[in-house]
Amino acid sequence: MSQRKRLSNTQSSSQNKRQSSSSVTQEEDEDATFTQPSTSQVQRGLEKLTPAQVDQKTAEVVQYFLMKDQKKIPVRRADLVKYVVKDYRTIYPEIIKRAARTFEQVFGLKLVEIDPKHHMYILVNNLETATSRAAPVECPTNPKMGLLFVILSVIFMKGGTVKENLIWNTLKKLRVDPGQKHEEFGDVKKVVTDEFVRQKYLEYLRIPHTEPVEYEFRWGPRADAEVSKARILEFMGKLHEQDPRSWTQQYREAHATQNSS
């Protein structure tokens, strides 16, 4: 318990840290000091440990991922090593391999590295979600996901990048005013430009050389891994009473990427 408590403390402090840019670079430095151990290093590391120790560490890593996944926060390798893996860093590749296997075999989840440069991981559902009849027990779905789905649809239909005003105007038409506090979503602008961005569903980027400053939205890597473009197109088809194939460009993209995701 004490260990886990410390773990959650350090997390909250690291989240605070992330606000200031100076400490972000500091954290990146820490990640840079972590070099992936070689196969022989891993082998030697494993020889020094009992199987029970390795199992225990794997369980801790699995729990850490599940905890982060509840809030849809991506896991950074640097944090994982620093707060959970710790002294076991020499066998990091083995532990991550075992955790990934556990997610797949036990939980039906896939461990995906969404940012190979900064080494960020998320969990994606591996099980087919579309079924013929409704589940008798529905997991409480986050109402914000509806908001997100609309935004992702607009971006996808507009070719992958849209200026922020288009998003705000679309939401206004749906009576979600980013300037006003929404009873379900709270501060809509913050949810969209901060929460969804942190969760890696969206990218919110400054358009270069604009005065006044303008921003645009794109799909984030979590959306790429988690959201089916074919389903978005199906939804648009129903909404507009139109054959999804009539959007040739989008249809091609949706069905080109579907197999890979």
Partner: peptide, 21 residues
């Protein structure tokens, strides 16, 4: 796996719902 995923979302269910699930 789907049963477990649902449990991870709801934490607790009664016996009737468990059987249906």
């Amino acid at each position: 796996r789907r049963f477990l995923q649902t449990m991870m979302g709801v934490y607790i269910i009664d016996e009737l719902k468990a059987k249906a699930l």
